[in-house]
Design a protein around this nucleic acid. Sequence first.
DNA 1: CCATTTGGTTGCATTATCGAACTATCTGGT
DNA 2: ACCAGATAGTTCGATAATGCAACCAAATGG
Lengths: 143, 143
Amino acid sequence: MSSDAADLQEAVARFVRAFGLHQPDRTPCGTSIPTSEAHALGELARDGELRQVELVHRLRLEKSTTSRIVAQLVQRGWAERASAPGDGRGVLVRLTPQGHQAARRLAAARRARFGTALERIPADERDAVLRALTLLTEAVDEP
Amino acid sequence: MSSDAADLQEAVARFVRAFGLHQPDRTPCGTSIPTSEAHALGELARDGELRQVELVHRLRLEKSTTSRIVAQLVQRGWAERASAPGDGRGVLVRLTPQGHQAARRLAAARRARFGTALERIPADERDAVLRALTLLTEAVDEP
DNA sequence: CCATTTGGTTGCATTATCGAACTATCTGGT
DNA sequence: ACCAGATAGTTCGATAATGCAACCAAATGG
């Protein structure tokens, strides 16, 4: 049985719905922060601080959208803007201590959600699933 | 190397961004109809006609949201509502000829998009990717 | 026959996204 | 040095999508 484009399309569509990616205001992980902020928070937690433009690239959003997301993080007291060293145009976004704490909560919620999912995948298939997802991401990614 | 929840979370996050699931007004497949309508259209094309409540289940959306999506399809002239046979409350959503045509266009666009993605996946991995995606969908789906 | 469940619709509130217009800064070529 | 063009951000306006609550109509089951 060889897979064709339609099968793949359908599998992706199913995944999107099953995972609840339709809900923009609630992360699939159950925390109460908006999805985009969760993505941004995750990236920021990874590096502690990031150029805003780097966030644009990682999140694949318009700079205007990204600017707003950062503004929201700042408003929550989770991040602060500083001017980027060596570039007067740039903004450096840095997590505050509360931001780091929020990121830890988010990470815990994610672990919970993905942990139970992982348990439902036969142990000897887990690496294959992860690998497949990575392959698919690269395949679907347009440059 | 065994996968853990964090790896899975990250892989999913990457996929979501790479595939462009953030854009609500344009399907990842490049057609100009809104994402939700595309999903609905796909399901309707599959069966020709569906109870609206069935659409609610398949799309995993609120009945209000679904009602609106159907209204939009009707407004485009792609679907029509009829009262469900044997149930005076129910609505039967049926694709019009133009609706079927739109569905074919959508299917073609999807094939194009997923076809090139598929080409980028090594041939001997394709079945594995599809299988993994299905496994993941089941794992992530909460009852 | 009435209470409850089920299927739908509409109004209200939130959130998200993009593109365009505008400002500020940096960079490369002359 | 200087100016044109690229780059980084912000703000504004328009669109889309979603959920919840309130409400109505039809079915169902004691």
